[in-house]
């Protein structure tokens, strides 16, 4: 019989991962790294959904994680296409330079 792990530990782990991602979004200027930090935040939420899904023995949470993965894949495809276009036009992906969107 395996000893379980309190749900609090999963909540704390997810919170820490989410905040690392949030700090990365705020502190970095490279747009690709900002994207990766957003992925990190999505994964923190996914982990918590799976933990609660297992806790309540309900499959809905895991199906939600499945959909979140599909949406994340779509988001990354479109986002990276936009970044590639921006890099072609501006020769830079520094978000501080791109904050005005026009010229």
């Amino acid at each position: 019989m395996l000893n379980g792990i309190p749900i609090n530990y999963y909540i704390m782990l997810s919170a820490v991962l989410f905040i690392i991602g949030a700090v990365g979004v705020m502190a970095r200027r490279n747009a690709i790294i900002v994207f990766m930090c957003i992925e990190l935040m999505l994964n923190a939420v996914n982990l918590l959904l799976v933990a609660f899904s297992t806790l309540h023995n309900d499959a809905s949470g895991q199906v939600f994680v499945f959909f979140i993965m599909a949406v994340a894949a779509a988001e990354v495809a479109v986002g990276l296409a936009i970044l590639a276009m921006v890099y072609r036009n501006f020769k830079s992906i520094d978000i501080d330079l791109l904050s005005r969107l026009k010229n």
């Binding site: 019989m1 395996l2 000893n3 379980g4 792990i5 309190p6 749900i7 609090n8 999963y10 909540i11 704390m12 919170a15 799976v50 933990a51 899904s53 297992t54 806790l55 023995n57 309900d58 499959a59 895991q62």
Partner: peptide, 21 residues
């Protein structure tokens, strides 16, 4: 951490009856 400190201290059932995954 302050807001989630009072979360329920339930044990996650592992390895046993949870077959939903």
């Amino acid at each position: 951490v302050g807001a989630l400190k009072g979360a329920e201290q339930l044990q996650i059932v592992q390895g046993g009856p949870s077959q939903i995954g």
